[in-house]
Each structure stands twice: as C-alpha cells, then as structure tokens.
Write a protein that binds this DNA or RNA. Sequence first.
DNA 1: CTGTCTATTTAATAATTGTTGAAATAACAA
DNA 2: TTGTTATTTCAACAATTATTAAATAGACAG
Lengths: 106, 106
Amino acid sequence: MNSEQAVKALAALAQPTRLAIYRLLVEAGQAGMSAGQIAERLSAAPATLSFHFRTLSHAELIASRQEGRFIFYSANFAVMNGMLGYLTENCCGGNIEACRTPGDLI
Amino acid sequence: MNSEQAVKALAALAQPTRLAIYRLLVEAGQAGMSAGQIAERLSAAPATLSFHFRTLSHAELIASRQEGRFIFYSANFAVMNGMLGYLTENCCGGNIEACRTPGDLI
DNA sequence: CTGTCTATTTAATAATTGTTGAAATAACAA
DNA sequence: TTGTTATTTCAACAATTATTAAATAGACAG
C-alpha cells in the first residue's frame, strides 16, 4: 500500500452512503449483496448507488460478480488490511510500549 | 463511534498532506512534533498545514499542546481505534472463520 | 515598548464531489 | 421479437474542498 492507494481507499469510505455500503458488505461477508438489495436497505436511488459502487470498486475496497440480471458486491478485506497497516506503520518509532499505553492501537 | 464521526475521521485522512501529517505523528508517538518541524518535513506552506491541522483536530485524530512559541501536535490513537472498530463491526455476520479466510481482517 | 519568531485566520479562487432524472445497456421470459 | 427487470451511464447543477498571499495574534528577548 502506498500513499496514493491509501488516500483513494480512505476517500472512498469518507462519505456516509459509501461507508454504509461498505459496512453492509463487511457484514454480508463472502456472499455479498446485490445492488438492488443494497438500494433497498439504504433507501437510495439506483443511480446514486451506482456512482458510489464505482468509487468503492476503483479503490478496490469492494469486488463485484454478475449472477443473471443481478450484480453482487462484496467487501475486499485485503485492501482494508493494507490500509490499516499503512496508517499504523512505524507506530511510535517502533517502540511498542509507547504505542500501547495511550490507546490500544493494533 | 457513529457514522458521522467515522466519516469525519476518514475524510480527515483522505488527503495526501493530512495522511502524511498523521503518519508522521503516529511515528513520533506521545512527544509529537511542532507545526514548524512538520512544515519542514513535508515542505508545505504554514497556512496550508494550519488548515489541515484544523481538519485533523476537528476529527479528534490529533491533539495539540502549546510549549512556548511552538505548538506540538500528536496522534490520538483512541479515535483511530474507534474508527477501525466501526469499519469492521459485525464482520461476516459474526462468523469469525468466514472473516479470516479471505484476508486477515483484525 | 519594539522587533522577531511561530503559527493561525481571512478572503479569494480553482478544482473536485454528490445527487438525480432520463436514457442506455444487458439478461432473461414469454 | 417484445416486454420486463436490474443496473449503469450521461448531463447538469449544487455544494464542498484545497491552496495561497496577506493580515493577524501570541510568546518571548532585548
């Protein structure tokens, strides 16, 4: 993960509708959810969601697969893990203890 | 952590300069760094950084303390942890195994 | 008080982003 | 083919965001 990828992933999640989509997909696991199911759960217009799916896909935070007329989206955990690693890299200059006392980062 | 706070934190990090600031402060640990030191490391204009400090502070991702003429900023790990928890809540519907196989989320 | 250093605020501009209706595409059934 | 369903793309507009120069504020030394 580099800065550009991390910014893209963070920006993709930094929007209420997209964050809700992502959390729904994290909960759904491997099976994922169809665009229509997500639209129903979030009460959002299809065009609006399509726009957000594209942003999340472009950041590789979600993947899609077609099944008949439906498109299923699912969370890509690897990219989330990469982002978390990038955010906490060299935490407290490598001094684990200094890192644990204030909060409980990782 | 709620959706609004999470979006604020994610948006704060979703910008190259702010992400660089945050990572610098994660590395610096409790001691933090002065605004001037950060400006030097990132070769950014003071006014630009001030704008970004405000965004990060508002999201409570960083804290500040004054020491003489200097203002020291440091990372607030608690909010980062809250955000990570929010992102992975109810992962795979609670089925830990389904969650671990694809990547290694948490 | 005056001057210097550190950092923030203001104001203006340029660029990016989110939403939605309408049209288009694609899969399937009759 | 024709019709129906599921989803995306297009176009236009409103709203938000980032950057910078210039002005301001606050701390300290002489």
